[in-house]
């Protein structure tokens, strides 16, 4: 390789390398802020190496799995409350008044945005559903995981309020 090309190659690669290192350090420093949500464990026990607890009144997002059997609904309104659990033992309570996404059900991953009103209670203004990277036909899901997911349009409701048991 002739010396001028070699020089250009070295300069280019060092610029790209320097930008990569700078970006890496920046993302590392900001890593806690890039997380979209707190896990229930992080809300109860604190987040990061310093175990910082979120403050009461703080607006935040929490993400976890809806604990089966914990969903409570109100017959007269859209009010719903449920427990959320992460990979650990800790659980937080989420209260929400509004329309839930179609994928919402017990055991489902969700992300709720709202205000922390007690150390483990969040009043949500928005509830989003997560889904995992598994895709399979309904028959296989029933066989493998014992899940029978009924789309909301086909769910049978006894009355306007009772949907939680499904």
């Amino acid at each position: 390789m002739n010396p001028r090309r070699k020089k250009r190659l070295t300069i280019t690669l060092s610029i790209v390398g320097a930008v990569a290192i700078a970006t890496g350090l920046m993302l590392y420093a900001l890593s806690q802020n890039i997380d979209l949500f707190y896990t229930p464990t992080e809300i109860v026990e604190g987040k990061g190496a310093e175990k910082t607890l979120p403050e009461i009144g703080q607006r935040l997002r929490v993400g976890g799995l809806v604990v089966p059997g914990s969903v409570v609904r109100n017959d007269e309104s859209l009010y719903v409350a449920f427990h959320l659990v992460g990979s650990g033992e800790a659980e937080v309570i989420v209260e929400y008044e509004g329309v839930l996404p179609d994928l919402f059900r017990e055991g489902q991953g969700i992300v709720a945005q709202g205000t922390l009103v007690e150390p483990n209670r969040i009043v949500a203004t928005e509830v989003l559903a997560r889904h995992d990277e598994e895709y399979m036909p309904p028959g296989l899901a029933k066989e493998l995981k014992g899940i029978e997911h009924v789309p909301p349009s086909q769910q049978k409701y006894n009355n306007a309020g009772n949907g939680g048991a499904l």
């Binding site: 949500f37 993400g63 598994e134």
Partner: peptide, 18 residues
């Protein structure tokens, strides 16, 4: 690489890769 590993490095709404 940031696009690819974002779902592993941080909590995201987007699911992980299949």
């Amino acid at each position: 690489p940031i696009i690819h590993y974002s779902v592993y490095w941080w909590n995201t709404l987007h699911q992980q890769s299949t």
